[in-house]
Design a protein around this nucleic acid. Sequence first.
DNA 1: TTATATAGCTGACCGCCGATCATTTCAACT
DNA 2: AGTTGAAATGATCGGCGGTCAGCTATATAA
Lengths: 227, 227
Amino acid sequence: MNSVVAINRRARSDEQKALRRQTVLRAAEAYFLEVGYEAFSMAQLAKRAGLVKGTLYLYFKTREELFLTLYEESLTRWSQVFISNLSEPMSSEAYARALHNTALADGTFVPLLIRLEHVIEHNVSTPRLIESKRVFMQRVEVIAESTSKALALSLRQAKEVTKTMGVLLIGATRTDQGPSLEDEELPVDVQDLIASFSSEPLFVKNAVRIIEGIRAEATANSHKTNR
Amino acid sequence: MNSVVAINRRARSDEQKALRRQTVLRAAEAYFLEVGYEAFSMAQLAKRAGLVKGTLYLYFKTREELFLTLYEESLTRWSQVFISNLSEPMSSEAYARALHNTALADGTFVPLLIRLEHVIEHNVSTPRLIESKRVFMQRVEVIAESTSKALALSLRQAKEVTKTMGVLLIGATRTDQGPSLEDEELPVDVQDLIASFSSEPLFVKNAVRIIEGIRAEATANSHKTNR
DNA sequence: TTATATAGCTGACCGCCGATCATTTCAACT
DNA sequence: AGTTGAAATGATCGGCGGTCAGCTATATAA
């Protein structure tokens, strides 16, 4: 009945506890992919993971700490996929396209990213928040290194590109997160509006503008005196 | 006790109903400014508006339709303030700064904007959604017209700038929506990270890059043959 | 092999949420 | 004054995230 076999009735050793935590996380991810953030309930998750709601709270302090963990996992997973899709050198456009497509291909990453600051982080302990921010910084570092090579930018520039791409990604993928309705229900003017906010071209075009802007600032600065 | 005097025990005429709807909206806005989106409860709102929870649902189908109405109001209000802050001509940077500062100055606009697609629109009837999208299109039109004059761009370019600024605003104001915690609790590396995502410079710098990018594309295209 | 102590796990319970609806009540019209 | 229909009510619903006293499986000691 359950998707994961409960190996033991009780997890006593640290390894067993880690294993149980993992089965919860995997069940949570599968469930999240089905129903999304708002419809996700802890009681349902417990059922699917083959235990009871109270037990979940032995492994995660709050619903949001569970989501924060899923976010961290998806960030790391995505960053690896993204980096493996880069070549040296590549165009800004190809870079932007790779970033966008790998991000959207991971069903967990974007939905959690866009809720990170204004929902998830508000019900998480401060130490856990700090830990999470450090994971984030580390990923930025790693991505920036690859970005530097792919786009032939200084590390400082590459770091700025990396951070800015995150900002743009959040804004550009909004429409994909809107209500999914049959297009036939919508009048053409509204359909056109939604089409004009289609995330892929929106992201890619502006990513290129920003990357080229950052590149241009460097050459402009090198022509100036050091004030 | 109540902030608004209940003019009548019952609203019978259309004007009276509109008036009561307005008192609910004004109470909702004041309450929202105090507690934000997640802590906002319909029962509390009813108390503050001087009526009972069930009555709210005579005037708004769902909590989200109430928020959608507040969003539309704030969008219109902000766009007027923003436009009145534009001059002709002005620099991209001044334009971006005006946009960012007027948007953040309105306590309702940004918090609702960032939740629009992935929360609010998911519990709203399709006709109401269509109506709301049309209000949005109309505001884009109005803002684009002023943008065209302020930045000396074609209307087509100005419309693209306007839409893109919305996307960027959502991404850039994320950090402002994070948990508000005493800075002393955070280690310096995390403080630095948060500071590096400070929304004003983040927005302004990238807005300028995008605006200048759009401007440059026009001159580049005019040098090409019409393919 | 059996007794004991530990801690993982349970499920009933809490307060609150958004939303509904049969009933009450009052303003307007005859 | 009597009638009526819609505005307002408040009890009620199912479900939510989260808690906790008690149960019991399990590791260890005797």
